[in-house]
Design a protein around this nucleic acid. Structure first.
Length: 351
DNA sequence: AAAGCGGGGCC
DNA sequence: GGCCCAGCTTT
């Protein structure tokens, strides 16, 4: 598309100057801050990210401090944000930038995309915001805006549909003000062209929007095809002694990879016997706790927690990755959200 | 309880 | 290149 015909970009850039967001804490030209925010913003909305971003930056103000930290400390600060592979990749990426690029994020989207946790869209966003590089993003906001504005059919998670959107996004990229344009697409998608009740009345693209013209705003973008999710169940032991709970680090990959959690009991084990033999603890009492369901994208997990009171333990828990953790210091633990909630309810005497 | 958000990586 | 992966928020 010739630049003079690119009304789309010009309209968005003009809209952004007056109606876009200009006070987000990561709106700087510091590649470290831009990168950190973009990773946190994958799969997570701005309002959720802001407090995490602030805490993270206070603890790891720059790339070298993050690269030098143990990954456990990174996971602790990530606890509750979800998708913990992002935190592990973030840490790996920090170390890779130190080694490969002398501690400076490259400006090239191709080089950025070779780093852990950075894909094509995130690479483009970082290079556009931090360095003004001309590169197209395609996140969920942009997919929604493009699907509606241009009437694109098909689930954007489908490779063919996504490829078509990438081609369109590339063709729409303006010659100048790519950083403003990039922020404009994100902001329009987040504040006007929302999934639920889009505010078409104040959309700068309303005049030309195909979905609005055809009355198909609610049908676009095409939703993900439905799938039945398998169900799993897991028994979890809250082993308690002297105001502390026993936490065990999970394997690095898979669900809640690398996080601390309650030990998972074998399906048919007797809780008291299992705790006694595995950890060498003297069990005083076992009590079932209310079961609850946690739903992931691709499966549902029924959690069956049990409280296991033991006599005051020795200082060491023996097994590697196993540690007693004070119940009044849960904030320091890298816990998955449902386990954190369970333990907090336990502390508050609600169970 | 169900739907939505969304980029990365494996096979 | 199709499909699988992963957790929290919103509705």
């Amino acid at each position: 598309m010739s630049p003079t015909l690119n009304r789309f970009a010009a309209t968005l850039v003009e809209w952004q100057r007056h109606h876009g967001r200009h006070d987000l804490p990561w709106q700087t030209r510091d590649a470290y801050r831009v990168w950190l925010s973009e990773i946190m913003l994958q799969q997570t909305q701005v309002d959720t990210v802001i407090p995490y971003y602030g805490r993270f930056l206070a603890r790891f103000p720059d790339l070298p401090s993050l690269a030098a930290a143990p990954v456990e400390n990174v996971l602790t600060l990530w606890s509750g944000l979800g998708y913990y592979a992002r935190a592990r990749n973030l840490h790996k990426c920090a170390q890779a930038v130190m080694v490969r690029h002398g501690g400076v994020f490259p400006a090239s989207p191709a080089l950025l995309a070779e780093l852990p946790g950075i894909g094509r869209s995130t690479a483009a966003a970082i290079s556009a915001f931090a360095y003004g590089t001309r590169a197209a993003i395609l996140d969920g906001n942009v997919k929604r805006v493009l699907a509606r504005a241009f009437g694109i059919e098909g689930f954007p998670g489908n490779r063919k549909v996504e490829d078509a959107m990438w081609a369109l996004a590339d063709s729409l990229l303006p010659e100048h003000d790519v950083d403003i344009y990039t922020q404009a697409q994100m902001d329009l998608g987040a504040t006007v062209c929302t999934r639920g009740r889009p505010a078409c009345g104040r959309c700068p693209l309303a005049d030309s929007c195909v979905a609005l013209r055809d009355g198909r705003v609610a049908e676009l973008p095409t939703p993900r095809p439905k799938k039945v999710v398998p169900e799993r169940r897991g028994r979890f032991a809250a082993i308690l002694a002297g105001g502390s709970v026993l936490l065990e680090r999970r394997p690095p990959a898979g669900i809640w990879g690398g996080l601390q959690s309650l030990p998972e009991l074998p399906e048919d084990a007797d809780a008291a016997d299992w705790v006694a033999s595995r950890y060498g603890l003297a069990v005083q009492r076992v009590a079932p706790l209310p079961p609850f369901r946690h739903v992931f994208t691709h499966f549902a997990l029924d959690l069956l927690p049990e409280a296991v009171e033991v006599t005051a333990p020795a200082a060491s828990a023996g097994e590697p990755g196993v540690a007693w953790h004070p119940l009044d210091r849960l904030a320091d633990a890298a816990l998955p959200a449902p386990i954190r909630k369970l333990l907090e309810q336990l502390v508050q005497g609600q169970l």
